[in-house]
């Protein structure tokens, strides 16, 4: 809206107000009504507003908790996906893949015990990509110096509030490794 239009609108509103006041002036003497006084809020009214706010805050907390609890009961099913290159992965090394969609980056680790472990690559703090630190045998986030257990995805140190999202993997008869599901970290607790 241009400044001219804005000033025209303001002028129209003000002129309407003036017209209403002029039209109602004869009745003001019989039914005194002061808008300024009406605009004031008494303590009692303000207490009422606060009670309504209190109700809204309680319903908000209950509703949010209920929604979260309901969401926690739903486990999404994702189609299995063969992880290319996992067959030849050496012990103590990792590779990146995408699961369940092309925008969900994940990391597959072959730990010192020879087993495969896979996690979503987004740090649960601020979504920086985590990497596998071979020398310490854990997943680390370089942004805020967080560490995750390589077998469970649990937070070892740092600011993340919950474990990494875990990706279920299985080794099939031909030696290939398949991702078969994704479970949000902390979902089990």
């Amino acid at each position: 809206m241009s400044s001219k239009n804005l000033s025209e609108t303001i002028e129209k509103i003000l002129s309407d107000e003036r017209e209403v006041r002029a039209a109602t002036a004869p009745y003001q003497a019989e039914f005194p009504y002061e808008r300024d006084e009406e605009a004031q809020v008494t303590r009692r009214e303000f207490c009422g507003f606060l009670a309504v706010t209190s109700t809204a805050l309680f319903l908000g907390a209950a509703g949010f908790a209920g929604k979260a609890a309901y969401d926690s009961t739903k486990i999404e099913a994702f189609p299995p996906l063969k992880i290319e290159g996992a067959k030849d992965l050496q012990i103590g090394s990792a590779l990146n893949f995408r699961y369940p969609t092309e925008i969900d980056t994940a990391i597959l680790i072959r730990a010192a015990d020879g087993n495969f472990y896979a996690f979503g690559q987004k740090c649960t703090h601020l979504s920086c990509p985590v990497y596998y630190a071979k020398e310490s045998d854990r997943l680390e986030c370089p942004c805020h110096e967080a560490g995750f257990d390589v077998k469970t995805g649990n937070v070892l140190y740092g600011p993340p509030p919950r474990p990494l999202d875990r990706i279920a993997v299985e080794m099939r008869d031909d030696g290939e490794v398949w991702a078969t599901g994704r479970i949000a970290g902390g979902h089990e607790s």
Partner: peptide, 9 residues
């Protein structure tokens, strides 16, 4: 809820 600490809710 965002941290999935459902026991605290």
């Amino acid at each position: 809820a965002l941290a999935r600490h459902y026991k605290e809710l």
